[in-house]
Amino acid sequence: NKASVVANQLIPINTALTLIMMKAEVVTPMGIPAEEIPKLVGMQVNRAVPLGTTLMPDMVKNYE
């Protein structure tokens, strides 16, 4: 099973992601793959992301 990106803390709306906000975890359903973490740094979330939430592509602005 591949790990996904999971919020390590509450991430407020429009916050630019940093490494300490994210962790890799095997979850179902899968979200953004953990190997994308370096690419996510500096990208903004378009909603508040609660602690423990799996990051999905539609939660990150301009994620492709």
Rank of each mutant, 00 (worst) to 15 (best):
L40K: 00
R47Y: 11
L17E: 00
E25F: 13
V6W: 05
M22I: 08
Y63C: 09
T18H: 04
A7E: 01
L10Y: 11
P12Y: 14
I32Q: 01
G31W: 02
A24K: 05
N8D: 10
N14K: 04
L10R: 11
T18W: 05
G52S: 07
L51W: 15
M21Y: 07
T54L: 05
R47F: 13
I11L: 08
M21P: 00
T28C: 15
S4T: 09
P33I: 10
Q44S: 12
I11R: 00
K23N: 03
E35P: 10
Y63W: 12
V5Q: 01
N8C: 14
M43C: 05
I37D: 00
I13R: 10
M59Q: 07
K23P: 01
P12M: 09
N14M: 12
S4R: 02
K39P: 09
D58T: 10
V5K: 00
S4M: 03
L51I: 09
L17K: 00
V26K: 04
T54H: 03
V27E: 02
R47H: 09
D58L: 10
K61N: 05
I37A: 05
M43H: 08
V5T: 06
P38H: 13
A7M: 12
K23V: 04
E35W: 04
P38E: 05
N14G: 10
M21S: 03
G52F: 07
L19K: 02
M43G: 05
P12F: 09
L51T: 12
P29M: 11
M43D: 04
E35G: 06
L40D: 00
A24D: 07
I32K: 01
L55N: 00
V6M: 14
P38I: 08
P29C: 13
K39F: 09
P29Y: 14
G31R: 03
E64G: 14
P29V: 08
A7Q: 00
I20W: 15
G31H: 02
P38Q: 08
A48S: 06
E35L: 06
A16E: 04
P50F: 15
M43K: 07
P12L: 13
M30C: 14
A3I: 04
K2D: 15
V5W: 01
V27K: 04
I20E: 04
N8Q: 06
I37P: 00
R47D: 10
K61R: 10
E64V: 14
A7T: 12
I13K: 12
E64L: 11
N1G: 14
I11M: 06
M56F: 06
V41L: 10
N62A: 14
K61V: 09
G52K: 07
E36N: 11
V27P: 03
P33Y: 07
N14P: 02
L55T: 00
V49A: 03
Q9S: 09
A48Q: 08
V45M: 12
V41H: 08
E64Q: 15
K61Q: 11
K39Q: 10
M59S: 10
P29F: 12
L55P: 01
A24C: 12
M59V: 10
V60H: 00
T18N: 05
M30K: 03
V26L: 09
A7N: 02
P33K: 10
P33S: 11
I32T: 02
M22A: 02
Q9P: 00
E25R: 14
A3K: 04
T53Q: 10
M21N: 04
P38D: 05
P29D: 09
T18R: 10
V41Q: 13
S4G: 11
K61W: 14
A3H: 05
A34T: 06
P33L: 10
P57F: 14
I37F: 05
A16R: 14
A3E: 12
S4K: 02
L40N: 00
G42Y: 13
V26D: 15
L19I: 03
A48C: 13
A7G: 12
L51C: 11
I11Y: 01
D58S: 12
M30A: 04
P12K: 06
A7K: 01
P33D: 09
K23C: 06
V6Q: 13
G52W: 15
L55A: 01
V26F: 08
A7R: 01
Y63A: 02
L40F: 02
V60C: 04
I13W: 11
I20L: 13
T53V: 15
V6P: 01
V45N: 04
M21V: 04
N62S: 14
I32C: 04
D58I: 09
I37S: 13
N14W: 11
K23I: 04
M30G: 04
A34V: 09
G31C: 07
V27C: 09
R47V: 05
R47T: 03
N8P: 03
I13Q: 11
K23T: 05
N8W: 15
R47E: 06
L55I: 10
T18L: 06
I37V: 04
L40I: 04
P29T: 13
I11C: 03
A48N: 06
A3Q: 05
I32R: 01
V5N: 01
L40Q: 01
E25Y: 12
K2G: 15
L19A: 05
K39A: 07
E36C: 13
K39S: 05
R47L: 04
P57A: 11
Y63T: 03
I37E: 05
A48H: 11
M43V: 08
T15G: 08
G31L: 01
T53K: 14
A24E: 09
Q9H: 09
T15R: 12
T53E: 07
L40E: 00
V27T: 08
G52Q: 12
S4C: 08
